[in-house]
Amino acid sequence: MEGAQTPEGGRRTRAALAEIPARLDRLRVTPLQALTNTRDLSPGLPPGYLSPAPSPDEMLIQQRGRKRLPVTWSPDIEFKRSSFHSVVRTPPKNSPGRHSPPKLGVTLRSTPRKRLILGDAERIPLTPEKIDFTDISTPQKFKLSSPVKGTPPIKRARLEKTLDADFKGPLDTALKGLSPTQLISMIRNITHKHPELEQEIRKEMPSPDLAPLEEKLSYLKSNIFKSLPTSRLTSKTDSPAYSRASTHISAFKKTVIEQGKVLVESQHWEAVIQYVFLAWSYVKATPVWDNQPHNTQRKQCFRALTNFCMMALKKGVLNRSLLLDVQDKLQSMVADSEDIQSCLKYTQGNLKDLL
């Protein structure tokens, strides 16, 4: 510790904290007082630091004050106020139990689906839980008026006009333009007016021409073979080959059955038997597939032809020579399908009856 020299010239020592009491005045704490003006207590701060002066624009806005309604009423101002509030105002949610359609004048934030059907609110049916079926007028309330036009009403068929008497062309040329139904109706009307012509027409009626039927079967069979793969390294009877020809096989089977039904309905029994032998040869010529389920349509064709043949044998009046010819052909067909044995046995029984 350093010593302080006295005026008398002697040295004496002093404590290290001897001067601290002199500095305690600066460390005294005054009690809290309410601040009335911060600027008075902090004179060193700039005047606009704590509360900056308002800008001229802000002072102008404060002087203007809140916008007030005019004293005099004007319809234009009232209309603008009403339209403004109708657009800005958010519509309240529907209370439970109230099912009112949304108003078209209010802009709603919704999904595109809701916006599309907003204008068709009248046509939106309620769910089954919300429909009161006890009300008698409920069906009339919820009738839907679809914007899509429905099917037009069926027009009454106009009476078919007969050929003008002034037609000078050949008769066979005019008959070519008629459908089978029109020809049948015309001949029926003529025989009804002139009964004596019916026997003459029966004598002149030829047997059905099977050439167009055979031509169609040949065309469909060729389509089956054209659809098969042509490469020598691939099989023509496996599953991939069948998948390529399945469409043509279905068309072939459909034609075989439909043509046979037309002949059965016409009751030309001899022509039915001839068609059975003709179509059988074409069905036999179709491919036999490696996978047995793929041969189902082939078996269906044989079964349908067997039914046609049995119907012709039962309902037709066949002579002995025709039955012998049928018997010989049926025996050669047994190897293709066992179902044909029933026709063979029935033919043999008819031949025994004719002896």
Rank of each mutant, 00 (worst) to 15 (best):
P102Y: 07
L330Y: 01
G3N: 06
K103D: 08
N295L: 00
P54C: 02
L159Q: 15
S55C: 13
Y219K: 12
A165W: 14
S137Q: 15
R156G: 08
K253T: 01
P170G: 10
L178G: 08
N307I: 04
G260A: 02
L171W: 10
G177F: 05
S86L: 14
E58N: 14
P75G: 09
D57M: 07
R89N: 05
K193W: 14
F79P: 00
H194A: 10
K226Y: 08
I131C: 03
P208Q: 06
L50V: 10
D353Q: 13
R113Y: 08
G169H: 07
A304L: 03
T111H: 04
P206L: 02
P128V: 01
S74V: 02
D339P: 00
S243Y: 10
S246N: 01
V334I: 03
I340Q: 01
D336P: 00
A34C: 12
E198S: 11
R23H: 12
K352T: 12
L116H: 09
Y275R: 07
F302Q: 01
M310P: 03
H85C: 09
Q199D: 09
T162I: 06
I117N: 04
A22M: 05
H192M: 06
I77N: 13
P7C: 03
F167R: 11
I340K: 00
P287M: 05
G150Y: 07
I273N: 00
L323H: 05
P47F: 05
I61F: 10
L45F: 09
M205V: 06
I61E: 08
E200D: 01
F133N: 10
A18Q: 09
R12F: 10
E129L: 03
S100P: 13
P152N: 15
L322Y: 14
F79I: 15
Q292K: 15
P21H: 11
C309A: 09
L330Q: 04
L126C: 03
S218T: 05
T191G: 09
L163R: 12
N37Y: 05
L228M: 10
S246R: 03
S321Q: 07
R11Q: 09
D325R: 06
Q348M: 03
R158D: 04
R39F: 08
S337H: 07
Y49E: 11
K155T: 05
E78D: 10
R303L: 02
H99N: 10
A245Q: 04
S218L: 05
Q182F: 06
S146K: 05
L144S: 09
L344K: 00
G349D: 09
L217P: 00
A285I: 04
V334W: 08
L45E: 07
K143P: 03
T30K: 04
S42W: 14
E265C: 02
W269T: 03
N37I: 04
I190F: 02
A157Q: 06
T181W: 13
A53K: 11
K253R: 02
C309Q: 05
K226W: 14
Y346R: 13
R320E: 11
S218H: 06
Q199E: 08
S137P: 00
L233R: 11
L116N: 10
S250K: 14
P229L: 00
H248T: 09
S266M: 12
L351Y: 07
D166K: 09
Q63P: 01
K345L: 14
S207I: 13
R39D: 15
T72S: 10
L126N: 01
S207G: 15
M205P: 04
P152Q: 13
I20F: 13
